[in-house]
Amino acid sequence: MRLLFLKILAAAGIASLACTTKVSEWVLLNALPDEYTLAYYHKEPFSQTIKQQNSDIINDIKSANIQFKNVLKTDIDKPYYALFYRNRLFSRYNDHRELDNLAVSPLREKIARELMAGKLCVMVYLKTDIPEKDDKGLQILKRTVNGSPFGNIIPVIELSRNSAEEKHFVSMLLNVESDLKVIDEPMLFGIFGRFKALEPLLAKGISEENINLMIDFLTADCSCLIKDNLPGTDILFTNRWENPAPALVNKILDENPLLLHH
């Protein structure tokens, strides 16, 4: 009798028990940023100039996490633009030129490169430009990051809240919480994932303990709970999130299992 042999080999160790992807990595790979809305409010029919102007704007932001829409509103004096995020008004612009570089700026480009390079996050230190206020927090930040086992994968970037070049970025950061604009204190934003900004530490809150808590959050296993209630505000940026480098946090944790926490 001819025997037909079939071999089945059960592969060993195929899957792991729980989600061991770290929060920072999971968010970068999976969490699509929420969209902004840029609305053009007008009460008159569009002129050719306005059409072209809006067309240019749309072209500038077309690859960012933003949608553009025209809104006919009869009770306004003159047309204007307004930027919304999650149905909240972030900024209003009376002149289209104010919208230049809305979705892109040098610092945002740099931060995005760091995130795509597999860094855990980028710590953006938003300065008041008053040294007495800024220096202490900055020192604590640098000391803490340098002392962290993850320090090498946490770039620190300083940003003046008065930066003209980064005015849109600053504005978005100051909209992460409703009262930040009126708080004249240095602030520390953890930026992770696809440009998501955590609620800032500010003033005395920029402490070693709080910075390490932020790092803990980003290096923890990504639980369903975190996925469901993902904190942070998405910053407007041109989408370039395909094929990021492997998350560097995994190498550090592989080499230092004692750092693992869930």
């Binding site: 071999k7 089945i8 080999l9 059960a10 592969a11 060993a12 160790g13 195929i14 899957a15 028990l17």
Partner: peptide
């Protein structure tokens, strides 16, 4: 989840 016990 597969147990990882090889069976042939």
């Amino acid at each position: 989840t597969a147990s990882g016990i090889p069976v042939t």
